[in-house]
Structures are given as structure tokens and as C-alpha cells.
Design a protein around this nucleic acid. Structure first.
Length: 199
DNA sequence: CATGGGATTGACT
DNA sequence: GTCAATCCCATGC
């Protein structure tokens, strides 16, 4: 491993594991596109066995990336407006992915502010549609290899290695709402929404 | 070919 | 708190 830390993307073996494990382990990792980068502070897992997942309907034109090899980006348009970024997980043939829901911005912040038309650091990437706008990720990035880029996800920086992870229910869905498949960096100020109060 | 439903956001009451 | 914007694609006639 001669590449500089934080530049090289995680390889397919990282994603070729149960999607809940990948979703938890992605907290603290770094998403990068060009000069812009941020630490992942919120993820959700989706799997073809449960109806909130796009892959629940089976293999279609839309879901073929989800059923493809692990370590690729699944990018789709939500509500006609927003591009949402996922990391395809589990072996090829299983429709599973991790939705990246929020980042703590660390590099390229001025470009992110220009793309978002906002100043507030907390508002730049605190939602799945916000972070793709801030990083300039669009539908053309669907299917790209997250190890080679242009969008990459790299391992945790040293100061994020021992980040605490909080488990919660997923946001914004109408099916399988009870599954605790949302993961957040404990105490982060950059989440899309607060963690739900304990029962 | 027509229809309907979103893994959301920002503006507004 | 409510609600519209707006694109892709799955489904059904």
C-alpha cells in the first residue's frame, strides 16, 4: 500500500460483506470527488429482502447496479430533483447498498458553498441530496468504481478510527420502518436529522 | 403509451 | 407544522 493515506479508495473486499456491517464501518470514512471531501457521519442499509429497498422488485433496468459487483456507486434521482449516493455491497447477485446520508465537510469547502449557494458549514452536506450537490455527484456517476473514482471512499483518518456509532431507524421511508438500519457518528453536529429519542 | 410514486429539500403558514 | 417542485422508471392497459 504505497498510496497516500486517504486518497486510495476502499477495495471490493470491504463491500463484499453483510450490508449492515458495511453501513456501520463506513461511518468515519472519507468520500472524495475532485477537491471536495467529507467524513461520513450518517448511513443507512438497504437490502433486496426488505420492501424499502429499490432492489425489492428484483432485477430491472433501474436496479441492475444494485445487483452488480460490490464497491460500485449506485446513484439515482429522488423526487425528480436530488441525486442520492449509495455504495453497492454484498456479493454480485445480491441487491444491497449503503445510502450515504450526511458528511462532515473537510476539504474543498468554498467550492461546496458555491455549489450549494450557502455559507453554513453544518448545512452543506447534512442530507443525502445536499451532499451530492455539494460534491457535484450526478446520475452519470451511477455504476462507477468507488476505489478508482472519480468518486472515491477511503478508510477512516486516524482521528476517526475509534468513532462511536449509534443505531437508529431509517429516515423518510414508508415500508419496513421498524428496522434499525440507520447508523450515525455519535454526537455529530452534521446529521440530516437528530437521532430518534430512545424508546 | 399513460400513469403514479417516491431512500428530499426549501419556502412558506 | 404544510406543501410543491420535477425526473426516472416500474407497472398496467
Amino acid at each position: 500500500m504505497s498510496t497516500r493515506a486517504g486518497i486510495r479508495g476502499l477495495g471490493a473486499s470491504f463491500y463484499d460483506r453483510p450490508v449492515l456491517t458495511v453501513a456501520r464501518d463506513l461511518i468515519g470514512c472519507v468520500v472524495r470527488h475532485g477537491e471536495c471531501a467529507g467524513v461520513i457521519v450518517e448511513t443507512e442499509a438497504y437490502h433486496d429482502s426488505e420492501p424499502a429497498s429499490h432492489a425489492f422488485v428484483g432485477l430491472t433496468q433501474r436496479t441492475k447496479t444494485l445487483f452488480g459487483p460490490p464497491g460500485r456507486a449506485y446513484v439515482y434521482r429522488s423526487y425528480g430533483i436530488h441525486a442520492l449516493l449509495n455504495a453497492v455491497s454484498e456479493p454480485e447477485g445480491v441487491g444491497a447498498a449503503v445510502l450515504i446520508r450526511a458528511l462532515e465537510p473537510i476539504e474543498g469547502i468554498e467550492l461546496m458553498r458555491a455549489r450549494r449557494g450557502l455559507e453554513s458549514l453544518r448545512a452543506l452536506c447534512s442530507g443525502p441530496g445536499k451532499l451530492t450537490q455539494a460534491l457535484g455527484i450526478e446520475l452519470v456517476d451511477n455504476g462507477l468504481d468507488l476505489e478508482r473514482g472519480p468518486v472515491t471512499i477511503a478508510e477512516r483518518p486516524a482521528d476517526w478510527r475509534d468513532v462511536g456509532v449509534t443505531v437508529d431507524r431509517r429516515v423518510g421511508i414508508t415500508k419496513a420502518v421498524e428496522l434499525p438500519w440507520r447508523f450515525t457518528a455519535a454526537g455529530s453536529r452534521f446529521l440530516s436529522r437528530p437521532v430518534r429519542a430512545a424508546a
